[in-house]
Design a protein around this nucleic acid. Structure first.
Lengths: 226, 226
DNA sequence: GCATATTTGTCCGTATGTATA
DNA sequence: CTATACATACGGACAAATATG
């Protein structure tokens, strides 16, 4: 088995291994990834690793500078602002479109959102704030999923993965995640009651609060050394 | 120069060359792309070509089936429906957000949109319907650009490139593009007058008409052989 | 400013699993 | 069932850019 044909996905597997380390915070933003090193460590060839790099770069988790290699992406405050711009446009937009549906076809599936909210509350009981953050992201993914569009889903997977990079900058994960448990639950109830328009409005405020809090924490980190 | 270092962008160049052929309609949807063939034709190695494939696949122009190679993507009617779902969410959403801006900061830049409309009208005078389609796409790209978000821009580049694949299926490009010249102009005027809310409404109807027309034409083609 | 080491970018040859004629 | 074509992945090579002393 020294060389070759592993059917499909050796690069994908390497990419997933890296994605884990990044979203778990093991590889900090700004950290350089050396090809030869990682290739031997992950047990793949350099060519395969480079393909994995491409996958993650496209997902916005790595940044690539020509002839200087790849690093774990470091978000700027402007990047962060953009993420929230997209979130408002997509998430609020998805809810608003539900509100505008003719009354007949107003049957949308909140199962995924329910599960995410429950998972978040359960994680909070265990004081597992990393899992809490994961659940929060799943909740918002579910909201965007109400648009019923694969394209939108893919975009949001990327956007929320990038957002995770910023989460690692939060000094006190509990203070950041805990308040949103209740707001997620609240939003879900409003939505379940059928008032998607009101939910969209709630979400807009919600996102604005979250953005402000994250940007503020981020500015503190940016002042710190790279 | 038998082997090696082209600094950066050899793959990107190959991808652009392919993108041209696809958006120009030289490579028809469903057409298979053989690695070795194309590699020699474009003067790049297989590894480099594979990277180009990856770029275009991510843009939705190629479809990749594991162990079966890549083909020029063939849109299904459901794909088409999704494209319009995204367009309504993004384009209308972008306009609506403008409408919700506090009156003070309602200064957005319509230069790109103006140019695209003018280019479309000019192309129509030359009866150049391909250029007319290009201008139409640029116009909508400009509308989405009003959101001011790089992420949204990237998404729309992909979405509109995919849409182009469907344009090739239109039997009578004039009948398809011409009516939208006036509507684009009209939309621009409404927007320039400052009533972004009304423009969003107009655009929603516009997109629905366009979608219907395209889906109908597409169904006819789908009935025809592959 | 210069010489050297490291790392990236690109390409080749090859081996093997998988799909198809 | 065999043969062929192809995608996938490996390892090695060398030029060019960058970092280091």
């Amino acid at each position: 088995m020294s060389a070759s044909g592993e059917s499909a996905g050796s690069a994908r597997r390497a990419a997933e291994a890296l994605r884990e380390r990044i979203t778990e915070g093991l590889l900090e933003p700004g950290c350089r990834l050396v090809e030869t090193e990682l290739a031997t460590e992950l047990g793949v060839s350099r060519n395969t690793l480079r393909e994995a790099f491409r996958l993650l770069t496209q997902d916005g988790l790595l940044s690539h500078q020509p002839n200087k290699g790849v690093r774990v992406r470091r978000l700027t405050v402007e990047d962060l602002a953009d993420l929230y711009r997209v979130r408002r446009l997509i998430e609020c937009g998805a809810l608003r479109e539900l509100a505008e549906l003719p009354a007949g076809e107003r049957s949308f599936d909140l199962a995924a959102a329910r599960e995410a909210v429950a998972a978040g509350e359960e994680a909070a009981r265990r004081a597992d704030w990393k899992a809490c953050g994961t659940a929060d992201i799943r909740f918002h993914q579910a909201l965007a999923g109400l648009a019923g569009s694969p394209h939108v889903d893919r975009l949001m997977v990327g956007v929320l993965a990038e957002l995770r990079l910023a989460f690692h900058a939060m000094g006190d994960p509990r203070r950041f995640h805990e308040p949103y448990l209740g707001r997620n639950r609240q939003l879900l109830e409003t939505l379940a009651s059928g008032d998607a328009g009101k939910a969209a409005q709630e979400l807009a405020f919600y996102l604005e609060d979250s953005r402000r809090q994250l940007v503020e924490a981020y500015a503190r980190v940016a002042a710190a050394p790279m």
